[in-house]
Write a protein that binds this DNA or RNA. Sequence first.
DNA 1: GCCGTTTTCGGCCCGACTGTTTTCAGTCG
Length: 596
Amino acid sequence: MTEPTRLTNRQVADILAGVGARLQILDANRFRIIAFQNAAESIRNLAQDINAINAAGELKNIPGVGKGIGDAIHHLLANGSDPEFDALFEQVPQGVVDMMQVPDMGPKKAKRLWEELGIDSVDALRTAAEQGKLRDLKGFGAKSEEKILKGIELLSTRVDERTSIGVARPLALGMIAALKAALPPETIERIEVAGSLRRWKETIGDVDILCVSGQPVLVMEAFRSLPEVAHIAGAGETKSSVVLGNGLQVDLRVVEAKNWGAALQYFTGSKEHNVAVRELALKQGWSLNEYGLTATGSGDAAEGEQRFFAEEADLYAFLGLEWVPPELRENRGEVQAARQHRLPTLVAMGDLQGELHGHTTYSDGTGSVAEMAEAARARGYRYWSVSDHSVGLGIVQGVDADKLRRQRVEIDAYNAHCTEQGIDFRLLQGSEVEILADGALGLSDEVMAGLDVVVASIHSAQRQDRETITARCLKAIYNPHVDILGHPTGRLIGSRPPTEIDMERVLQACRETGTVVEINANPARLDVNDVYARRALELGCKIAINCDAHDVLGMEIAEFGIGTARRGWVTAADVVNTLPLDAMLACLKDVQAKDD
DNA sequence: GCCGTTTTCGGCCCGACTGTTTTCAGTCG
C-alpha cells in the first residue's frame, strides 16, 4: 500500500494561504478569507507535526482550525488533496495570486486585470503596463502603470523580503544614535524601536522607529538626511519612510508625549496581538487606535470620551491587563494570560551566570582559552565552557583525546590563577562533539566521561531523510555523557532550511533523558527557535542559552538568544545556565549518573 | 469559517495614504 507524500506543516499552511488568496480574488465572504489566513498562520507557527496532530484526532485544538478547515486538512493529509481546494486552485491561476505580491496590487485590482484584460501572471502584467494597456481601465491611470512597473522591479531586486534581526538591529540602533547626534540634545524627548524588532522576531520586514518630539519636521528632515538612506519612499510631517542601501525599509513616526503609550503599543504589534487587544477594548466600550482610547458609548463612559496614556503599561492596566512583554505579543495566549495576571517572568540578560558552548583556537575559534575566559569574565559570567569541535567534522581541525589532555592543563592553570587571585570564575572543559552520519559520536564514551560538559551537534549529512536523521540524533541524546543538544535543527536563517528532523520525538527524548535543549544565540541560527523552545518547556525540557562564540566579540550576541527564549515564554528557572556553577552542574547527566 | 468573561448565534480592528476621483475604493501596516 502506498501512502501519499507526507505534507509538512509549511506545505499545509501554504495550501491554506493559497485558498485564502483565491477566496480574496473571488471576493468571498471576508471573514471566511480571514479564517483561512488565520488557520494558515497558526499551522505555520506550530511546533508539532500536523500529521501527528491529525493522527491523534486533535486538529480542532489548533487555534483557528474548526470543523470546516479541520475536515479539509484531514482530507488533505489522507489523500494528498482536497476536492474543494483543487477546484479553487484550478479556477484561479497561481500567476494571478502572484500578482498580489506587487506593492499596491491587492485582490480587487488583480481580479479586474485578470477578468477584464486576461492578465494572469506578473510577466503579463509587466508587458501590459509597458504597453500602456492598463490606463483604459476605470480606476487605473498612467500613474498606476508607472507604479506597477516600479513595484515589479522592486520585487525582482529584493531577493530576501525579510532581513535577519542580526543585521537589522545594529542598523536601527545606529540610525537612532546618528539621529540623536544630528539634532540638538533636547529635540528628541523619547525614541525607541518598535515593530518586530522590539518583539525580537528572528527576521524583520521593515524597521519601525517611534519618537516624541516637539519639532517633528526637524526630526523628519534629519532622518531623511542620514547617510545610510538610499531612497526616500515617503516624506510626511510626522511620518517618513526611507530605504537603506541593503533594501531595508525604515519608518520613523513622531507622536506627542501624551500619545506615547498607545502609539508604542500600536506600532509594536503584532497585528494579531493588536487585534486581540482592540477586541477586548471594544467589549469594554472603548475603541483603540494609535493615539489612545475613545469611548464607543456602549460602556460606562460617554460616547467620544478620550483617554491617553503616557506609558504602555498604563494602557494595558486600563484594559485590565498586565503589561505584556513585546516578545510575547503574537496572539499566542498572552492576552488571556495577561487578563489572568499569569504572564511568566521571562528570562533576562542579567540572569545568565555563564555559558556552555563556545570555541577557542583549539578548533575553529580565533580567541585563546585565556582570551575567551577574560571575555566571559568581562560579561560578568561565573563560568564558561571551552567546547571545541571534536574530531569527525571534516572542515574543522577537531580536538581529539590527546589535544583535550593538553587543553585540560591550560584550563586547570587558568582556574588555579583565578583561585589564587580570589576570582569567582571557573573555566569548564567541554566539547562540541560531532554526531556522525550514523549516530556515532566524535569522541569515545571514556573521553566524554572525563569532560565537564558535552554538547552534541550535527554539522554534516544534514539532508538525511526524516527517519534517518531523527534516529541518528536520538542515538546521541540517549548517550549518558551527552548533556546538551546543540543547535538541534541545523538551520541557517535565510540560507539553509532546518533538517527534516522530527523535533517532537527529539524533544520528548530530551525530556526523558534529561538532555538540555540549546537555544543557539547566533542570530543566523536562533536554534531552537521560539516555537520549539516553548514546546520544549511544555514537555518539561531544560534549556541552555549559548552564544557558540568563535571569538571574544562572539559573546555580544547573547541578547539574541535571550530574545528568542523570551519569545518562547522561557523563564530563568527553565534555563540551566542561569544557575550558579554547582547547581548548573548538578543538572547535567554525568553528575546525576555519578550520584546514583 | 471561527469562536465564546454578551457560547451554539451573531458577531468578527482601525486609521493613513494614494490615485483617481468630485466622495471613494483599494491597499497597507
